[in-house]
């Protein structure tokens, strides 16, 4: 049976390549028609993320740094896609995302969160992610301002519970995990996210390729 499979896979890979839609239109199915993210799919806003960060995350998915935890169904979705893409396709996808104009997200107010407490907590985030949540390429810290609040909550929780930042060779992830673990509970996560949410949307950092 294995032999049959092998032959089949060889024959079909050429056909598969053809059947992929051009220009990575695929991304927009989950991430929204302007790559602005989609709460129903739990897919983040990509338009605020610079090329280097997108590339880094493709690598993270392919290296099993993201999406390996058993219950991380959303991470696994993206991981499965990343695993089918070669380097050239990843660059194509990034270039395609770059062509999408950043979309202003609707303001969502979390009434149970304490923004002031969030601001205090954000002090420790600032060193890497910037005072305005604009990110820092040198430190490999992504922009946060303009990201969906539900996504930030989800990722802080993922770092905290070890779905992210739990692998020896993922040094940036490990650093972030330490900070996430210093947030004592869900309330703290909600507070710091509420503060980030209150930051005026910065234009994404460098939008250069490579």
């Amino acid at each position: 049976m294995n032999k049959i499979w092998l032959v089949f896979m060889l024959l079909s890979s050429a056909v598969l390549a053809d059947s992929k839609q051009p220009d990575a239109q695929y991304c927009l199915v989950c991430h929204g028609s302007a790559a602005q993210g989609n709460a129903a799919i739990k897919a983040p806003n990509l338009t605020i993320l610079p090329d280097w960060y997108l590339r880094q995350q493709f690598i993270a998915f392919r290296n099993n740094w993201r999406g390996s935890a058993t219950n991380d169904a959303h991470g696994k979705e993206m991981q499965a896609v990343a695993n089918t893409m070669n380097d050239a396709e990843i660059e194509q996808a990034i270039a395609f995302i770059r062509r999408q104009a950043p979309v202003k997200l609707p303001i969502s107010v979390n009434t149970t969160a304490n923004v002031q407490h969030g601001q205090q907590l954000y002090q420790q985030c600032q060193a890497c992610h910037g005072a305005q949540g604009e990110g820092n390429a040198q430190l490999h810290a992504p922009p946060l301002a303009g990201q969906h609040n539900w996504y930030l909550v989800q990722q802080l929780s993922a770092f905290k519970n070890g779905w992210r930042g739990n692998q020896n060779d993922d040094s940036y992830g490990q650093i972030m995990r330490q900070f996430a673990q210093s947030l004592p509970d869900e309330q703290a996560i909600a507070d710091v996210v509420a503060y980030i949410d209150s930051l005026p949307s910065t234009q994404p950092l460098l939008r250069t390729s490579r």
């Binding site: 927009l28 199915v29 991430h31 929204g32 028609s33 993210g37 129903a40 799919i41």
Partner: peptide
């Protein structure tokens, strides 16, 4: 709509939409 990477716009009197709601929520 996007077709082969190009954008096209059409107008009509009515629109009947059967796209799954979880995807509509990601469409501008």
């Amino acid at each position: 709509y996007l077709k082969q990477g190009e954008s096209y716009t059409e107008q009509a009197d009515y629109c009947l939409n059967c796209i799954p709601a979880q995807l509509v929520s990601g469409i501008e």
